[in-house]
Design a protein around this nucleic acid. Structure first.
Lengths: 248, 248
DNA sequence: GCCGAGAATGAATCCATCC
DNA sequence: AGGATGGATTCATTCTCGG
């Protein structure tokens, strides 16, 4: 991370500025352990995830040489492979700082679900299911299904403890119209995932974006560690967290 | 196919008895071309352990204590590699007998979606999207998402023609309580897929099961070719088709 | 015909036990 | 790195049936 101090901190939230991989390496070094990872990673439209850029990252972080070569049959082959490799990296680091049997929730669209679910499993997580966030309405698409939902991969770090927690697999919640971030999820969508995570736990969100996961964690009496690489979002996240009351 | 004659035939439906691959080879030889493939193949899912996967479908997909009994079906015990290879085979044959820009709809669960979407693409189809059939409720699952939805892969045989057809990506429809086949889909679910297929077209269902796809096709003024390997289902399918009025 | 109580149901999973 | 079998468990929703 650019430095080891949080950019923002309150009684429930720590927000770090820096690349997700860098900060997670530091968190691992400090032997910090979280109960769950709830995150909305870049879906990779391809533009900012090119393989030449990836080469640096892979050289820097390739640890155990476990990055397997892989290709789907879709789109630009190189972009798919580098998305897989990069996903494998952050998922492996995230698992290192997650307690045994802790949960992972990673949002993704249908196009990247196979690549991300492969990366989740190759990083050592046990895939437990897929949830559907139905937006209730989607942009119509000539001759195709409308774009009316997103998916979330659920996995655990090793065998699941039996917990008396339940959540429906399909959750309907309209998009917020006053959202400030392109891929911002409604609070309700994060709360839905947190139904499967016990109260008073510590949540990690390596791609904080507008900070929705951190706000949902704090508002539900949990604590959260957030990471965001883009400085333009830091102040927004800090403000949203500060405005949030921590309820138990 | 066991022979080249349909087991059943009416003004809208042809039903063949035989292995899907064998019959499709014969259809290809006859240069028959369909407008769309709408199918519900065996999922080969269920069970993280091999011993669970090998069980009869009625054992592995239902709970003990259930009184109702369905007819069983075969071909649901493949491991990942052979499931991919077998899926590639039937999808390649299905594409051979589909018109250019014709549609494919294949139902699958979350566990097998990555494998089946790989097979769809390796067989030459263009992946166009994923639809979600929400059952409205799901079997509760401790610490996991409930089992409340199934997915359907949409693909086309080559680039899409622009068609003025639309369908939502999430479709909510309860399970039919008087179903006779373990994996029987409600008619409404097939109709939802057929929203993206023009009227008066010819539909192929290589894994007819209880015949729902054939009934939905006939009832909506389309024609259909059905294939079913298991003789125990043939008479049921024929009866359901015969009872169906063809409406335009 | 309406309502409420009780029973049945679900494209599973985990685990003990036996061979 | 055994493989197969069967029983217990989970609860929201729907169905059945009697009052």
């Amino acid at each position: 991370m650019t430095n080891n101090e949080p950019y923002y901190e309150d009684e429930a939230v720590q927000l770090y500025n820096g690349d997700a991989l860098d900060v997670m390496v530091e968190l691992a070094r400090q032997e910090i352990k979280v109960d769950a990872v709830v995150t909305d990673p870049p879906y990779s439209s391809g533009g900012n995830m090119r393989s030449d850029k990836m080469k640096d990252v892979l050289t820097k972080y390739s640890q155990s040489g476990t990055i397997r070569s892989y290709g789907t049959f879709e789109g630009d082959h190189r972009d798919q492979r580098s998305y897989f490799a990069w996903s494998h990296l952050w998922l492996s680091l995230a698992r290192q700082i997650t307690k045994p049997s802790g949960d992972l929730f990673a949002f993704i669209d249908w196009r990247q679900l196979p690549t991300l679910s492969d990366a989740v499993q190759s990083a050592g997580w046990l895939w437990q299911g897929v949830g559907v966030w139905s937006k209730g309405y989607g942009r119509p698409n000539k001759g195709r299904f409308s774009a009316g939902h997103e998916l979330v991969i659920h996995a655990t770090n090793g065998p699941k403890e039996q917990k008396e927690l339940y959540a429906p697999s399909v959750f309907t919640c309209p998009i917020e119209h006053d959202k400030i971030h392109l891929s911002q999820k409604p609070l309700g969508v994060v709360d839905w995932c947190l139904q499967l995570v016990e109260k008073e736990t510590l949540i990690l969100e390596p791609f904080s974006g507008s900070g929705t996961t951190l706000v949902a964690a704090k508002a539900s009496g949990r604590r959260a560690i957030g990471i965001e690489a883009d400085p333009q979002w830091l102040e927004t996240i800090a403000e949203r967290c500060q405005e949030t009351l921590r309820l138990f």
